[in-house]
């Protein structure tokens, strides 16, 4: 492979489709993942993210379209492809009867590694996952964050070309999430290609170089977090919260104050490049919201704009 040419995508999907009976979980999506990038699927639960990940992971056959992973066809060369992937599934699949270290060693054995090599890598990965002190304890009593880090360490045992992370931090407390993000960030720095799904916009912003937004089995937008925000939202947002019952009576009184107004059940979002100015203008019109929050636009706003719904309900 010539080094000066742009590297071919590690994963390439065209018209990729997954059906379960009459239900279409993934509807003809296209995307490419380049070597070394952190690529995200952002979308609410049920958008088709996990089905897509399972097709990439060669554990679920595509119902239509084409998919190549590492230049190979999952339909014919699944085991070979899986040998180069590191998979972090949505639910932990650790063997709770074994110790922390045994989980890594046994998993390495599945990739055809020698026992000595598995042991060597396991010790390094325990260090990386900050689990060295727990190496000989059983998995069952570990905290959720520790189990998640162990799952990530396990996925690295074969030194994969691509890491597939399905909702890596769902269900963790904020502290455990940040610790996990830090580890994933280090992997990214070291050139490991990351493909992840999430329904947390902060996670997508933290980790992803590029992402696609999925909704109802389709991709609705694609780009870097920054591009997406620039393209689909304003720089800032003023969030106004009115006393119960008042919000519904405001029709017309806010007209012209912002580029766009979203009505959420509990608050109004006014999109503008200068949120402070909007807040002042609201006040000048004699409106008295209970709280006013001015913040920068996020991917949540992009999603709201594209689908009319919030990501986490």
């Amino acid at each position: 492979m010539p080094t000066d040419a742009p590297s071919p995508p590690l994963i390439r999907a065209r018209g990729l489709t997954k059906r379960f009976g009459s239900f279409t979980a993934v509807d003809a999506i296209d995307f490419d993942v380049a070597p070394g990038e952190a690529f995200g699927f952002l979308g609410p639960n049920g958008a088709g993210k996990t089905s897509t990940m399972r097709m990439i992971g060669c554990t679920s056959p595509a119902s239509g379209g084409t998919l190549t992973v590492l230049d190979m066809d999952p339909a014919t060369r699944g085991p070979e492809i899986r040998g180069h992937l590191g998979v972090v599934p949505q639910q932990d699949t650790l063997d709770e009867e074994l110790t922390v270290r045994e989980n890594l060693v046994i998993y390495g054995r599945y990739f055809g590694l020698s026992r000595a090599e598995c042991g060597r890598r396991a010790d390094e990965l325990l260090e990386f996952a900050q689990l060295t002190e727990r190496r000989d304890s059983r998995v069952e009593p570990l905290s959720g964050g520790m189990k998640r880090r162990l799952t990530i360490a396990r996925a690295l045992i074969n030194e994969p070309d691509v890491m597939l992370l399905d909702e890596p931090t769902t269900g963790l407390d904020p502290q455990a999430r940040h610790l996990l993000w830090d580890r994933l960030y280090r992997l990214k720095q070291r050139g490991v290609t990351l493909v992840l799904t999430t329904h947390y916009m902060d996670e997508a912003e933290q980790l992803c170089d590029r992402l696609v937004i999925m909704d109802k089995a389709r991709i609705v937008a694609e780009g870097s977090p920054r591009q997406l925000i620039e393209q689909y939202s304003t720089r800032e947002v003023a969030e106004l919260r009115f006393p119960v019952g008042v919000q519904e009576t405001l029709d017309g009184q806010l007209a012209g104050l912002a580029d766009r107004i979203e009505h959420l059940p509990d608050r109004l979002l006014l999109y503008a490049n200068d949120g402070e100015a909007v807040a002042v203008a609201v006040h000048d019109r004699g409106l008295r919201p209970e709280t006013v929050l001015v913040r920068r636009s996020t991917l949540e706003d992009v999603f709201l704009r594209l689908t009319g719904r919030t990501l986490v309900e």
Binding site: G36, G83, L113, E159
Partner: peptide
């Protein structure tokens, strides 16, 4: 931090060089 992660890109580089051979059907069982 120890071996495979010393330098950026080390992990992928290594994995290109030292490929584990997928176990045969019998070995897999």
């Amino acid at each position: 931090m120890s071996a495979p992660f010393d330098e950026p890109g080390n992990a992928t580089r290594q994995s290109v060089l030292v490929r584990p051979v997928p176990p045969s059907a019998l070995a897999a069982a």
